[in-house]
Write a protein that binds this DNA or RNA. Sequence first.
DNA 1: CTGTTAGCGCTTTCAA
DNA 2: TTGAAAGCGCTAACAG
Lengths: 315, 315
Amino acid sequence: MSDVARAAGVSAATVSRALRGEPGVSEATRRYVTEVAKRMRYAIARDASSLAGGRKYAVAVLTADGGRGDLLAGAEGALRAAGYDVLLYVLRDDGARAAFFEDLPALARRVDGVLALSARLADDERAALDGVAVPVVAVRDDDLRDALRLAAAHVRDLGHREVALVLAEDADESCGELLVEAGLRVRPEWTLWSSPTVAGGEQVVDVLLDGDRLPTAVVCAGGEVALGVFLRLRRDGRDVPGDVSIVSLDGTELARAVGITAVEGAWRERGEHAVGRLLAALRGESHGGESHGGESHGGEPPSVRLVVRESTGPR
Amino acid sequence: MSDVARAAGVSAATVSRALRGEPGVSEATRRYVTEVAKRMRYAIARDASSLAGGRKYAVAVLTADGGRGDLLAGAEGALRAAGYDVLLYVLRDDGARAAFFEDLPALARRVDGVLALSARLADDERAALDGVAVPVVAVRDDDLRDALRLAAAHVRDLGHREVALVLAEDADESCGELLVEAGLRVRPEWTLWSSPTVAGGEQVVDVLLDGDRLPTAVVCAGGEVALGVFLRLRRDGRDVPGDVSIVSLDGTELARAVGITAVEGAWRERGEHAVGRLLAALRGESHGGESHGGESHGGEPPSVRLVVRESTGPR
DNA sequence: CTGTTAGCGCTTTCAA
DNA sequence: TTGAAAGCGCTAACAG
């Protein structure tokens, strides 16, 4: 940095301020310094920066399985755009989990915040994390609102009124309200939770078949689940979409391949929203405030859109 | 650290050495210091450590799409086991790519090495990366050897002799040799490259159908491709596995769902192998050596196994 | 085997 | 708006 300072004819302090966008530097100086730094291929050393400044500019991202790619991609993009590095922790098995929670003191020294994407934290794990003195934010179903609305509007427009909703296991019931807002009815016994697998989707159908009648549409949080629902319904002699329509909130290759109507970008949306909440918490902390949680606006236009395929049709 | 030193009745230097497993500390001292540190919930500050020591204990992991979850999980696990943090970079679109390659100077100051998982680097990108002065390792098909052998043995045992091999686009031909070693014949025109999508798999079949005859078995590097091959063959009236057997090297949910015989753990294996090569390079560098590349042994027993489903049968 | 002494490359008061 | 000086918390020589 002192090389850059010399080359630009200013002090290191000024270079530091200029490059970080800190106030207290004239626009002219900032521009010039930035240009010199770029020409010299100089970049601030994060180690030294965070050692001196306290902030680490890094966020730990927890995922259970290397997981849903788009979720991770959405979170990573939003974090990087905000200037944070993404430290990935894959908590795939009990060993990895245990090791991670053993080493929380180290975590606290590495990151400014923690983002739990798909880690299904146990209560004691959550408590341990909360003791780390950095904000912890987990993906919630709220982060999926736009996608759910889109799916709900679609099935409603097709004439469906009573639909089943299949959520991820860590989801809470509040999602149902979004369907209600869209003018749909949600029977309590038609709000179901499923593991994010084909088998999970099949089991969901078994439950539905036990009832007195079937819904005419099913909204599934995941592509695998949607496929499971699809396969199981067909095996039972039901026609899709003749008897039952299926929408997936997970527009991956799987939905595309099998021809399932899906909301594209839903997972990315979840990631981005969660990051928004985390950034708000970080901002709050650095302002000395206490804004844990807090509403956030992705700023960006919602990146979700519905792709209609062969799994949905009029009631 | 000085607190711990005081509490343990030693100097900070000794604490540092003890906690990092550096030589030059008696076992007794090390044990005691470690225990004191743990009790005080102390962890070394990475910033300060790497500022003073030069090593960053972090690796940048590049992925195109948040990608194949198991690949990432395998790499992350192996890196963390070796004491490295994983800095995730998702190069999902041109914007993200451009931003990443704009900022290479910053990368060089953050990590000790780069691991490209599924980023399909263009030549100029690869060159730019190589200019970064840290080892760069990309996942190669070599990292898939055990999986390929397993798949080859399976189809051979079923009586197949001439098989088609569908590789990822960035793969090289050497994989074919593994099939030959297994006693299979590999016609040049039956070694094919495909994008990792269902559509890619379908196109592959189109190419095969143009030939004078079909192979009796197809080994596919990816689950989506395998599904594409499967769907396209069926559409053409071929029976799977009656006419053609299909094996996927990607034992994900997709293969499970559709009933495709697959090698489970192959992606994890790839990740672990690539990390092995990167660690070797890092070790080489820190020893002052020049061992770029270099053979590595995962040490661990191979984590791959074949799961036979309905897509393979006797010739 | 252990302690002492210099920094590593920044950021941040505090003055100017 | 800018600069000078004092660390941030550790590691690596060098002594002992």
